[in-house]
Design a protein around this nucleic acid. Structure first.
Length: 598
RNA sequence: GCGCCGUUGGUCCAGUGGUAGGACAUUGGCUUCCCAAGCCAAUAGCCCGGGUUCAAUUCCCGGACGGCGCACCA
């Protein structure tokens, strides 16, 4: 089991990631990815994009990271991300002031109260520290919002916030995005980018930070008719830690298939189940250790009020389980919120299979009459007539109808209202799509992939540390070495091979410093899957020049012609071909070495 | 944000009231035909601010950063 400290030390030393701004003492919660880490993260994002955007036929967008206040009023982040904390002067414990009030006064939703009122309530009810019973009446109530606030434009400008999740950037653009999807459900929109949370206490290296990268997919569906292609993943094995198992506290993780979990009702939403299956395969592809991975269902108390079912993908790192992805069925919550706050339409027009013929009561009030009669109230009266016609068409049977506007009663001649019942053809209706959201924490996945790849073994009796990264994730595809550095023929050919491999699009490291063993270890430690070594045996025979290709984990070597080496390595790296090193060994000559790995 | 502990070359550590030493790593050279070998040389450090002192990397105070516990994690 890898010690987290060892992984973090390696990450710092070999340029995966490290605390940012070190020259100025650093700032908690901000990390810089070094050359190797940035490459791994980039590879991970590419693999994500391949699976969740391209192969799903989804659309990727890139929205701004700063958004105006109104967006977060609508999303609920302005209130929901806002904590009021009060600290006990005696024992130093911090408590949520709103929770204290709710627990002790019967007042609900204390969260939305202004600070001054909260302070007053604490005094009034003589609320005390739940830990040590010290009165809190004179203690300051601190307002803490998890969002970074900024100001847009010169002077005081208008308030803006760094987005605390990428999702809102997709939701707010829905009215336009649905056009790009040609108004047809279901469709999915993805986004990869940074999000910001001003965490009270960032911890655990890159696991909990203030600026992080999310990869999110928002799937917009018609809840009535759209079904996921569950058959694609029904046989995928998943390890589930259900709410029931958590409450029973037996630590029981059940290994089952997606299909069974749906059939047994363990996973309530087919859509969520589908993405669990897709994600499971993707996590395996990028090298997450499936024995240190599970899907954990949210407990009833954890669920957001709009979510029917929610699961987290969790990985085990440093002995703890951390959330690396959330899968949520968000219903129409987000789009409805933005529709209400913006006044824009966040619906899709859904055509019926058959047009429906319906009778509809309408009025077309004669404003030329209503205007002079009711003055400024005329518009409201007309609106009230329209509402009445929908609700109670029979009211227009009489000669006069009566409507109420703001408590005042108005009487209108039925003739003036122009009441009629029309037969209209309805071709469909406007519906607000539901949203299914898998939301990936990229940095935590990068960390998981590195820690799960961390290995210590022995080569030739010497301890070796290496990263068994999946080739698709590794920062460098291959390294090229001349076996010894005092022979120009080897140096020249190594240069040539390096150029060939780079021309084939591979990320190649060239190294001629120190002994060959040292160079192998350098590459092992950053997870380079293959090393190509140019030696004299390869250029002194009669046949074409050859080089050796060494596999990282086993240290096995195969002699391959120079002319074929770029293609062969590209094939080894391609997740599609699944060409294994064994196949390479079978096609060429494997070299007998004395090197023992253990 | 609270409490405890810590912070010395790139990394990991030792040490000191008179400005520091090792190991590994890195760079250059020699050597070397396959797994951190050897030889020579080089580069490189006391977290920041204030105080005490003739003198502070060392002692004191504050801060920043890190680890652990608590709280927080919509």
């Amino acid at each position: 089991m890898a010690e987290q400290e060892d992984v973090i030390e390696l990450a710092k030393r070999r340029g995966f990631f490290f605390g940012a701004n070190g020259a100025y003492g650093g700032v908690a919660g901000f990390y810089t990815y070094g050359p190797n880490g940035a490459a791994v993260k980039d590879n991970l994002e590419s693999a994500w994009r391949d699976r969740f955007t391209v192969r799903q036929g989804n659309m990727e967008i890139e929205a701004p990271t700063i958004m105006p206040e109104a967006v977060f009023e609508a999303s609920g982040h302005l209130d929901g991300f806002d904590d009021m904390l009060v600290e006990c002067p005696e024992c130093g414990e911090s408590h949520r002031a709103d929770h204290l009030i709710e627990d002790n006064t019967g007042i609900e939703e204390a969260e939305s109260l202004p600070i001054a009122e909260v302070k007053e309530l604490i005094r009034e009810h003589d609320l005390r520290c739940p830990t040590c019973d010290t009165p809190l009446a004179d203690e300051p109530v601190e307002d803490f919002n998890l969002m970074f606030e900024t100001s847009i434009g010169p002077g005081s400008g208008q308030p803006g916030y760094m987005r605390p999740e990428t999702a809102q950037g997709i939701f707010v653009e829905f009215p336009r995005l649905k056009e790009y999807a040609r108004n047809r459900l279901p469709f999915g929109v993805t986004q990869i980018g940074p999000a910001y949370r001003n965490e009270i206490s960032p911890r655990k290296g890159i696991i909990r930070v203030r600026e992080f990268t999310q990869a999110e997919l928002e799937t917009f569906i018609d809840p009535e008719t759209d079904e996921p292609p569950l058959h694609e993943v029904e046989d995928v094995e998943v390890r589930l830690y259900s709410a029931e198992a958590q409450e029973a506290d037996d630590g029981g993780i059940t290994t089952t298939t997606v299909g069974e979990a749906v059939a047994e009702g363990v996973i309530a939403s087919d859509w969520v189940a589908y993405y669990l299956g897709v994600a499971q395969e993707w996590y395996q592809r990028i090298g997450v250790d499936t024995d240190r991975f599970r899907f954990r269902q949210h407990l009833p108390g954890e669920l957001a009020h709009y979510a029917a079912d929610c699961w987290d993908a969790e990985s085990e790192v440093g002995g703890d389980w951390i959330e690396i992805t959330g899968f949520a069925y968000r219903s129409d919550y987000d789009l409805t919120k933005h529709a209400d706050h913006s006044g824009e339409s966040f619906t899709v027009f859904k055509q019926y299979d058959e047009p429906k013929t319906v009778e509809r009561a309408t009025v077309d009030p004669d404003m030329a009459t209503l205007g002079p009669e009711f003055g400024g109230d005329a518009g409201a009266v007309a609106e009230a007539l329209r509402t009445l016609a929908e609700r109670d068409p029979d009211a227009f049977d009489a000669d006069e109808v009566e409507v109420e506007v703001d408590g005042d009663s108005y009487t209108v001649d039925t003739d003036v209202a122009n009441f009629s019942v029309e037969t209209v053809t309805e071709n469909g209706e406007h519906i607000t799509p539901h949203v299914v959201e898998p939301s990936f924490g990229v940095d935590r996945i990068v960390y998981t992939v590195i820690e799960h790849a961390y290995r210590v073994d022995e080569v030739d009796g010497e301890e070796r540390t290496y990263l068994a990264l999946d080739p698709e994730m590794a920062a460098t595809d291959a390294a090229v070495f001349p076996l010894v550095s005092n022979d120009d023929r080897l140096l020249d050919l190594a240069d040539e091979v390096t150029a060939d491999l780079r021309a084939a699009g591979l990320a190649v490291e060239y190294d001629d410093s120190g002994s060959i063993g040292r160079r192998y270890r350098r590459q092992d430690e950053v997870g380079t899957p293959f090393c190509v070594t140019v030696d004299r045996d390869g250029i002194e025979g009669d046949g074409p020049d050859t080089v050796t290709v060494r596999e990282r984990d086993s240290a096995r070597q195969v002699r391959v012609p120079v002319s074929a080496v770029a293609d062969e390595i590209a094939a080894l790296l391609d997740p599609e071909t699944e060409r294994a090193f064994d196949a390479l060994a079978a096609a060429y000559d494997e070299i007998e070495t004395d090197v023992e790995t253990a």
